[in-house]
Structure formats: C-alpha cells, structure tokens
C-alpha cells in the first residue's frame, strides 16, 4: 500500500518526519496512520483516526480562531538582538525567521471573535521552540497593556519550551514582566484567557500561562514545569502515564477545560459572551 515516491518530500530532503510534507498524504505523528493532507488540513491537523493534535503555526491558529480578515498585528517592529553575544544565537534567529516567516516566536494583535473585539497572542513552536526572550516578553506585556488601555479581553495561545536560554537572565525576567502585566489586567477586571497547546513548559508555564482567569488546553499537550525529559530523571518514582500533559494538569486542578481543537473558537466566543465582552465597567 505504501510505496516510496508516493510520499511527497521537500527538495532538500533533510526534514524530519515530524514535518508535514506539502503533498498528497502525510503521516500521523502518534498513530502513524497515513492521512490525506486535504482531510488533515480540513481537520486543523488533528488526526482523523486517533485524534492527535499536531502543532499549528501561529497563523494557522489565528485562521481557525478569529473572524476572517479581522487580525491586525501589533508590535511586529520589535525584534530580537543578541544582548549576551550568545553562541550561534544570531544564526538561530535568522534560521527561525526563514523557516517560519515570522519576526519572533509570538504573533500578537487585535482581532474579532464572533464580532467581539479581543487582543490575541499566539506562540509559534517552530520559532526556536516558541521560547520566550526579551521580544516575546515585550510583545506579551504590550498586548496586555493594549488590552488595559482599550479595555479589551486578552487571549493567549501558548506553545513554548520555556524561557530562551540565549538571552540568559533577561529571558528569566520576562516571566516576571509578563506576570506583572497579567496582574494589571486582573486588577482592572479585564478577562484574560490562556489556551495551553503542545507544549507549554518551563518558564512560560510558570508565568503568564498559569495566570489566566480561565485556562483551556488541548488534549494530549505536554504541559508541565520541567518538561517530560527532565521529569523522567525522577528515579524511583513511578510516573503516571499522563505525567506532564494537559490531562494531568486538569486532574490536579490547574486547567479549567480540555477542549478539542474545533471546540476552542466556540468556547472563546461563549466566554466573551458570559463575561460580558471580557471587560467589566465597559465604556
């Protein structure tokens, strides 16, 4: 049934099997089922057989989340430098920009969901693992401050391995900065919703991702403090099968709802309705 050559391959041929070839068929990363790309894309990269939620790029996520054509990017002009002269960092940034066509690991802006205005940010794991350096932190804080200034609810989709090592302590401080901005939203009664997607770990999970008034998550996403690789070194303890997944976090009270990908947009629209546009004291 499967023949070589039938699979489309990118010309450079050095892409890992996790990349989705731009051809007729593709393979589920979890169950290895051969899937028609057309069906796979139509199902928002959720496996039609086992339901595995494959990663989405930031713009793929926006496309299925906000009203068509409503997204207006903010702060795209803020870009990274290499403050610590860290080994290979400029090359990594350049490669990430080329591969993702993004200016940084998060896209932020304004949009409408079911005709309701929101500030929205979406991490892109393809850009250096969605890691948070100065620019990601700055864009998040500015997005939150935009929400404050215009009294708009803030919705953030996370997909990140954590703080960006290449900016050292400055990256660690982004945890503090974004959490402090989240504090301002909270004080001002502006709704803040986090949607945890695969993966959300480390310094991102231990900061703004854990601070939503409402926290939603996709099924099967890796969600945890240390990341599963580190957790596995916890010798002598039998780790549960779902250790550091969204299901584990939900079981332990850290997540409000685990939702299928296609349920997220309607859920956000409903939350905006239930929380009266997500901004009490509306002007």
């Amino acid at each position: 049934m499967v023949r070589s050559g039938w699979f489309s391959r990118k010309p450079n041929g050095n892409k890992s099997s996790t990349d989705i070839p731009a051809g007729i068929v593709t393979k589920c990363q979890r169950c290895n089922e051969i899937l028609f790309v057309r069906d796979f894309e139509r199902n928002s990269k959720v496996c039609t057989k086992c339901g595995f939620h494959h990663k989405l790029s930031a713009y793929e996520r926006l496309e299925i989340t906000v009203d068509e054509g409503s997204f207006q990017p903010l702060n795209e002009h803020i870009i990274s430098r290499d403050p610590l002269n860290f080994i290979e960092y400029p090359a990594k940034l350049e490669k990430a920009q080329t591969n993702t066509k993004l200016t940084e690991a998060i896209v932020t802006g304004t949009a409408f969901i079911d005709n309701k205005p929101v500030v929205i940010g979406v991490s892109d794991f393809g850009y250096m693992g969605g890691s948070m350096g100065s620019v990601v932190g700055e864009r998040i804080s500015r997005a939150m401050e935009y929400g404050l200034a215009h009294r708009l609810p803030v919705i953030l989709f996370t997909a990140s391995g954590g703080a960006r090592m290449q900016e050292g302590l400055l990256s660690l401080m982004q945890m503090a900065k974004t959490s402090a901005s989240a504090g301002k939203l909270r004080n001002e009664g502006i709704l803040y919703v986090c949607v945890l997607t695969d993966p959300t770990t480390g310094g991102v999970y231990a900061s703004y991702a854990c601070l939503g008034d409402v926290i939603l998550a996709e099924p099967g996403a890796v969600v945890g403090f240390a990341g599963r690789r580190v957790g596995n070194q916890d010798t002598g303890v039998n780790l549960p099968d779902n250790f550091q997944t969204s299901e584990f976090q939900a079981e332990h009270g850290m997540v409000d709802r685990i939702l299928q990908r296609k349920e997220i947009r309607p859920a956000l629209a409903l939350l905006l309705k239930l929380f009266d546009g997500g901004r009490h004291n509306d002007r």
């Binding site: 959490s179 403090f225 332990h252």
Partner: peptide, 22 residues
C-alpha cells in the same frame, strides 16, 4: 521538578507569586 511538584502545581505557585509580589 519532581512528581510531587507537578501534582501540587509548582508552576502555578511560582507564577502566582510573580504576579502577587508585583
């Protein structure tokens, strides 16, 4: 960063402190 830490939500506890101390 062990099982117990995840079970009781060490990430949430840190994030919470970041926000509340600010």
């Amino acid at each position: 960063a062990d099982l117990h830490a995840e079970e009781l939500g060490v990430s949430e506890a840190i994030a919470h402190n970041l926000r509340e101390f600010s």
